[in-house]
């Protein structure tokens, strides 16, 4: 299983701070589609994904036990 962390707009839309999901074997791109298909969220096109606190690329593959974070465009500062 994978812990999936949600922030800001995505967290508000889903109504949860985190999810348990089986994303092992999915690419980052596929995992975005999985969230879009299973939850009431607007487009994740501009959303970045971090795996174990490091930014991941669209074709990186998620492993069992990885923590996957969906990072909408940031607005710190």
């Amino acid at each position: 299983m994978n812990e999936v962390l949600l922030f800001a707009r995505i967290q508000d839309e889903v109504g949860q701070k985190s999810l348990e999901a089986d994303l092992a074997g999915k690419s980052i791109k596929e995992s975005k589609r999985w969230v879009e298909d299973n939850y009431e969220v607007s487009s994740l096109t501009r959303t970045m994904v971090a795996v174990n606190e490091e930014f991941a690329k669209d074709d990186d593959v998620i492993d069992e036990g990885d923590t996957v974070a969906f990072i909408p465009p940031v607005s710190g500062g």
Binding site: D12, R46, V74, S75, G76
Partner: peptide, 20 residues
């Protein structure tokens, strides 16, 4: 502003918005 995962939610006079 480009890459640190921090988000700002604005509370305007006429509503709230996550800034993106």
């Amino acid at each position: 502003k480009e890459m640190v995962p921090i988000w700002k939610k604005e509370f305007w006079e006429d509503g709230t918005q996550w800034i993106g």
